[in-house]
Design a protein around this nucleic acid. Structure first.
Length: 605
DNA sequence: TTTAGGG
DNA sequence: CCCTAAA
């Protein structure tokens, strides 16, 4: 199980050559190669897809001194490389700060607070601002910041590692002076800083610690600008107010969501994430033997989904939300079938930021917070969606693909029902259809809204079906991009259609639809036309042999009563319609009785 | 937007 | 059923 899981992980580990280096890092003396940790611990070069995924991750961490998109991934690195975990002692080369700056060029950019302001959407900025106001008295200054400041003896150019083993008790960043913060900064990042901005320093340190592999390998965690030990955190957590706890979670999980928040400027309202999960996750992330349950919980820190993944899922859910508007009770059924996702509105502490909707996606066992991005691209979902996918079959994420296929379960069976013959109105299978259909999406549900009530014709009794008029379409993998769920025609509908044709004439499909099918919103005028065409064909095929054939062959669905077919042909004959190629002598041998009835009725034609 | 016809 | 041209 772990092996399987490991295969899907992508790790960024330092290597000594530039083989496979990401383009982004070409300028960096420290080169990272993207590898995948195989089940047996081997390092497998990453595929192009994985590289793209990681590139996505790196994009958001541009200003990060270290490439730590995910502690879990790093934990793999720890396992693989060993030295990462073993290395506890480190020295800050005080006079080598320039070298280090070179080694981590981006760090120079973040030195100035203004630079952060440019990036602006830093989750920690909100957190620290926020935390200050809710800071509790339990935060005490038990350590001198100089404890973190190590003597510097390391050689030039050697990779620097922070020493968290020196951390004992708690350190409340809020209580530190600027100087202490600067020293803490140095201990954390291994370089000096001249920034006087306490806020910025705290943010930086918090972020650095949170994103640090070495730190996550310790039993320390960060809570509310306070570095605490794992055990003590429990006690600490108890005295925290609820609202504060929310923000804490945001901090503790920021390595998995920080980049998201970075972009979206939000704070997660992680009400259901208990403190225990948070406190243990950091420790367990470096545990080699992880049972599945642990995996699930630590999955909170799983890798950030790709943009495309976010987009695709959001598109699905945007349709879900649309459907919610159209029919509130539909959503519950949909949920029943697809309980894995749920929307979660979150409030933003910042006044200048709009509330952002995220949802927790537990697909693939990873409860990743995914921002809900609404696609403003088009009013209607792209129709030629599948052709695009065909051009790029790898377009969808695996997870997304699973989602789509889940919607698609009814696809193969569809063809069985997809015949021109009409089911009897008492078809028992249909009443259960909505359960399946509820899981599918409809772009044309707008048709349901337009229910015209000028039903001056007859009391349409297709009402037994329009109670749940699921006009649903489903994006299919192959073939058509989306297909309306085949809705078998009932005899009632056929009769209405025939009568409608008789009254208004074949071709007036709009009229017939509006007047005779007012309550059957799922039948479009085109549907009527198509059905009539089929009826016509059927009638002319069956009529020559007529009466004998009707029920002789067992059809999957109930055949159209001969009487109806007869009338169809009469109408067709009368209106000059006849199936092309099947000329049965349009005005020749008819039963005169039928014709007379017909004449009387369609006199206005 | 509706109709007609092909797929 | 879907798509599209044509009106």
């Amino acid at each position: 199980m772990d092996a399987i899981e490991a295969k899907t992980e992508v790790s960024v580990v330092p290597v000594t050559n530039t083989f496979g280096a990401l383009e982004k890092e070409i300028t960096d003396p420290i080169v990272y190669q993207l590898v995948r940790v195989d089940g047996d611990g081997r390092l497998v070069p990453a595929t192009q897809d994985e590289i793209m995924v990681v590139e996505d991750l790196l994009e958001d961490d541009k200003c990060e001194p270290k490439l730590v998109p995910d502690t879990r991934q790093i934990s793999e690195s720890c396992i693989t490389e060993g030295y990462l975990m073993a290395r506890n002692l480190f020295q800050v080369p005080e006079e080598k700060s320039n070298v280090l700056v070179d080694a981590v060029p981006d760090l120079g950019n973040i030195d100035a607070p203004e630079k952060v302001a440019v990036h602006g959407l830093n989750p920690f900025s909100e957190l620290s601002d926020f935390d200050q106001s809710v800071r509790t008295e339990t935060c005490f200054h038990s350590q001198d910041a100089s404890n973190e400041d190590m003597p510097s003896t390391s050689a030039a150019g050697s990779s620097w590692k922070p020493d968290f083993s020196k951390l004992e008790g708690k350190i409340c960043l809020d209580n530190l002076t600027v100087k202490e913060l600067q020293e803490t900064f140095k201990a954390t990042f291994g370089r000096e800083t001249s920034v006087k901005d306490k806020q910025w320093l705290k943010r930086r340190i918090t972020m650095g610690l949170t994103n640090s592999c070495d730190f996550s390998c310790t039993t320390f965690i960060i809570r509310d600008n306070v570095v605490v030990k794992n055990g003590e955190e429990q006690i600490y957590h108890r005295v925290k107010s609820r609202i504060s706890a929310d923000s804490e979670d945001g901090v503790a999980n920021s390595d998995s969501r920080g980049s998201l928040g970075d972009r979206d400027n939000r704070i997660n309202d992680d009400a259901d994430l208990c403190g225990e999960d948070v406190s243990t996750s950091a420790f367990e992330s470096c545990n080699v033997t992880k049972d599945l349950d642990t995996e699930q919980r630590t999955a909170k820190r799983a890798r950030k989904p790709t943009k495309r993944y976010i987009e695709e899922l959001s598109e699905l859910e945007s349709r879900e939300s649309s459907e919610k508007l159209a029919s509130p009770d539909k959503i519950s059924r949909y949920r029943f079938a697809c309980p894995q996702t749920h929307m979660r509105p979150t409030k933003n502490v910042r006044s200048n930021a709009r509330p952002l909707v995220t949802r927790e996606d537990s697909l693939g066992g990873s409860g990743i917070q995914i921002p809900f991005v609404s696609r403003i691209r088009r009013s209607r979902p792209r129709e030629n969606f599948m052709p695009l996918l065909k051009l790029q079959p790898c377009g969808m994420d695996m997870v997304t693909r699973k989602v789509t296929s889940a919607f698609d379960v009814s696809g193969p069976q569809e063809d069985k029902r997809n015949n021109d013959l009409i089911k009897s109105s008492s078809s028992p299978g249909w009443t259960q259809q909505p359960l399946i259909a509820a899981c599918e999406k409809d772009d044309h549900y707008s048709g349901m809204k337009i229910v015209e009530l000028d039903n001056d014709v007859e009391p349409n009794d297709c009402s037994e079906y329009n109670s749940d008029d699921n006009v649903v379409t489903v994006p299919t993998q192959k073939g058509g991009m989306r297909r309306k769920h085949h809705r078998p025609w009932t005899i009632d509908e056929v009769v209405k259609l025939v009568e409608g044709v008789a009254r208004y004439g074949a071709g007036r499909w709009s009229e017939i639809k509006r007047l005779a099918f007012a309550s059957c919103s799922y039948r479009t005028s085109v549907d009527l036309k198509d059905k009539w065409r089929n009826l016509l064909k059927a009638s002319f095929v069956q009529l020559p042999a007529e009466k004998g054939i009707l029920n002789s062959r067992k059809q999957a669905s109930v055949p159209i009563p001969a009487a109806i077919l007869r009338r169809v042909r009469e109408l067709a004959d009368m209106q000059g319609q006849f199936p092309p190629g099947l000329s049965t002598g349009k005005s020749s041998g008819h039963s005169s009785s039928d014709r007379s009835v017909h004449d009387a009725r369609s006199g206005f034609l």
